[in-house]
């Protein structure tokens, strides 16, 4: 029951939050300290505020991925897939239907869209059941409280809120995985 990564896209089609867990190629080692779990929390701001990027961590580990895509490219592809599928589903079965998840041979992608066109995407392993509820919970409990500061309207208040959000997200995800 592994969770691979988590993305949030805003309604301007930008990726405003990415988090990846590196259990992709290894088994997940559930430990308590943050140092040994190889997390690479990457929070991306929109391009317009690149001057404030120094505040943000932007760690990319291309070596551990061995020539795979960088995080930003990954996010763009995920957004493209999600957007196309959402439009396809809308076209096929009406404007009120929404696509919930899809599964491939190796992973499962769960999708949740809020009324404000905010998109939450979660990549997990194949055996996870429908995590739409989980995504909804993340939205309601964590994003609404701490996460608004991700949007481009509030460049200043990022410091504290990001940490709170991440801590909440981390603990929430861990409870799911166990």
């Amino acid at each position: 029951m592994t969770i691979y990564s988590f993305y949030i896209f805003d309604r301007h089609c930008e990726c405003i939050y990415v988090k990846q867990w590196h259990q992709r190629d290894r088994t997940f080692r559930p430990t308590s300290s943050s140092a040994s779990t190889v997390d690479s929390p990457v929070a991306l701001a929109s391009d317009r505020h690149s001057s404030t990027s120094s505040k943000l961590q932007n760690e990319v580990h291309p070596s551990s991925r061995g020539g795979r895509l960088s995080v930003q490219d990954d996010a763009k592809l995920v957004f493209g897939v999600v957007f196309s599928l959402r439009n396809m589903v809308r076209k096929l079965s009406g404007p009120d239907d929404s696509f919930i998840s899809y599964r491939t041979g190796s992973y499962k992608l769960h999708y949740y869209e809020t009324a404000t066109n905010l998109k939450f995407v979660l990549l997990t392993d194949v055996k996870m059941n429908n995590l739409k509820v989980v995504l909804h919970q993340i939205y309601v409990n964590l994003y609404v409280e701490f996460g608004e500061f991700f949007s481009i309207e509030h460049p200043g208040g990022e410091g504290v809120a990001v940490e709170l959000f991440e801590m909440g997200l981390d603990s929430f995800i861990r409870t799911i995985q166990d």
Partner: peptide, 15 residues
């Protein structure tokens, strides 16, 4: 996210 998976989309679920 899994290396060398080689599979594409198999199942798509909606409401």
């Amino acid at each position: 996210p899994v290396r060398n998976s080689g599979g594409g989309l198999e199942v798509l679920e909606s409401d």
